[in-house]
Amino acid sequence: MYKSFSDHLLDWAGRILLTLILGFLVLPFIVVFIASFNESAILSFPPQSWSTRWYVNAFEYRDFGNGLRNSLRVAAFGAGIALVAGAGFAYVFNRYDFAFKNTLNGILLSPLIIPNFTIGLGVLVLTAAASMPRNVWTVVAVHVIIVLPFVVRSVYVSLQNLERAYEQAAESLGGRPLHVLLTITLPLLLPGLVAGAIFAAILSFNEFTASLYVVSQRTETLPVAMYNYVREYADPTLAAMSVLYVAAVAALLLLVHKIFRLEKVLNVD
């Protein structure tokens, strides 16, 4: 395609702008990466001397290990329950008309607007008012509420893209509803379901604000443990922790991208 001088100028302006924006996005992670190797407990740029001792510290700090175990457990159960409930709801919402369908939809998607601190506070005062014990299941419940809308949306998009003719063909060939569900619908929805589950698990793993309201010392999740650490200590242990966190999430995302292509999952293709 022919390009005029002004077109080239636009191209270059665009490239510079893009680089600046991407720089803004990665800057904090580069900085935290450098800071994590700073020998001194007091921040300085550039670091005077280098060390990996904060990584050792991060691994040895008991609250992080405890928080990681809690977070993994909560994310697994939270995402699992949200997947089952969310996929089921997306299916009936896509397929059927029933009483209070839109009310139910509105309530389930409301956590997209209700701030997390309100959800956390709500569950906290609910358990207090109903004299319910607060344990790991309270945390799971909060996480299910928060990640459910994302699962519903992901599965709903997959369902909308699923041509009804596949299921109709299977039905005409003698497949009973359950058989069709298991041999046609579920396999064809699998990418959406897996993506929804992974998305939900990551969101749950990261959830901080609402968790802060309902965790106890024993059920503290990793983000809460990290927050508490910053409030008590100023050393770069948390920088080391952040680097590990970023590395783990980036690896997971790269894997998802390789298998499913993020463009598809996020519907930006």
């Binding site: 003719a165 596949y166 005409s172 003698g174 396999p187 064809l188």
Partner: peptide, 20 residues
């Protein structure tokens, strides 16, 4: 009678072959 008991064969517009 539901479709799965009607003993009817259908060829759909886009064939609806199960991709998996």
């Amino acid at each position: 009678v539901p479709p799965y008991q009607r003993e009817i064969g259908i060829v759909f517009q886009n064939y609806a072959l199960f991709p998996h």
